[in-house]
């Protein structure tokens, strides 16, 4: 692609990087990334990917902006209260960078629509807040052979891993099945520090940029964990893919996306 003078100026700090250059920036501008969840994680991801010039950014979320969101969901402002999160996020992204095409999906992601939505994207960001949705995204991405970034945050902690087809285990290899409802606390129940969402979401944006440009190593085959109180980072080297994984294993039993009961009720709050 040919950059205009404005684009050369806008992306100059990227282009000057040996690992990115004009070529890498062109890949970013041609890249298509879907962010599922316009919340604590999705907000920083969307801000950084829009600023980076990712060509097409999809944003899926059924919720409206609530006062309790603003402590961490930095893409929305007080003036956006009550607005659809995808609309509010789209406005901010376009204001940051008019180069970016934003596609919004104001709907719950479920087994019936996920394959149709992810098919148009190169890389998927899991910014959801519940396990049924996280397993659904994993299964759909494995089935559709799409790379994605998984992340979770709680209290002062966060973690993330990247799945790329053929490279390392999937989320289900590590965690098998969603825990029973309320067995593991959610942010709503246990709280979360806003800046932890910023730290982990920014790392998810970093994974998307590295995937698009081919720069450096992805977090495939490893889970990076962060403890803000102890300033402790730990990169867990994950075992290889489980041969008996229900979705990515040798004889998968999950051949199409499935919904877990919790998904619908949790997504409505």
């Amino acid at each position: 692609m040919n950059f205009t003078n404005d684009q050369l100026a806008r992306y100059s700090r990227h282009i000057i990087l040996t690992e990115i250059g004009v070529k890498g920036q062109a890949r970013i501008n041609e890249g298509r990334v879907l962010i599922i969840g316009a919340g604590g994680l999705g907000a920083p991801v969307a801000l950084y990917l829009a600023a980076a010039g990712v060509g097409t950014i999809g944003m899926a979320d059924a919720d409206e902006v609530d006062l309790s969101n603003l402590q961490r969901q930095v893409i929305h402002t007080t003036a956006d209260l009550g607005k659809a999160k995808v609309e509010s996020a789209a406005e901010t992204m376009k204001a940051i960078n008019p180069d970016v095409t934003v596609k919004t999906y104001r709907s719950f992601i479920y087994s019936g629509n996920i394959l149709d939505i992810i098919k148009d994207y190169d890389f998927i960001i899991d910014g959801t807040d519940n396990f049924p949705a996280k397993f659904l995204i994993n299964d759909a991405c494995v089935i559709a052979r799409k790379p994605f970034s998984h992340a979770g945050i709680l209290r002062f902690n966060g973690q993330l891993m990247t799945y790329v087809p053929g490279a390392g285990p999937c989320y289900r290899c590590v965690f098998r099945e969603p825990p029973p409802k309320d067995a593991v606390p959610t942010c709503r129940q246990a709280g979360v520090i806003g800046a932890v969402a910023g730290v982990i979401g920014s790392l998810q944006a970093m994974e998307a940029v590295k995937f698009l440009t081919g720069a450096g190593d992805l977090l495939t085959g490893s889970l990076l964990t962060y403890d803000a109180l102890k300033n402790d980072w730990h990169k867990v080297r994950l075992p290889p893919r489980r041969a008996d994984c229900a979705v990515c294993g040798a004889k998968p039993t999950i051949l199409e996306p499935v919904d877990y009961e919790q998904a619908v009720c949790d997504l409505k709050h």
Binding site: G39, G127, F131, G152, I153, V174, C187, L223
Partner: peptide
């Protein structure tokens, strides 16, 4: 040994 914990929040 590694312990891997569920972490769910996104967070709404």
């Amino acid at each position: 040994v590694e312990f891997l914990y569920f972490m769910g929040g996104g967070c709404r």
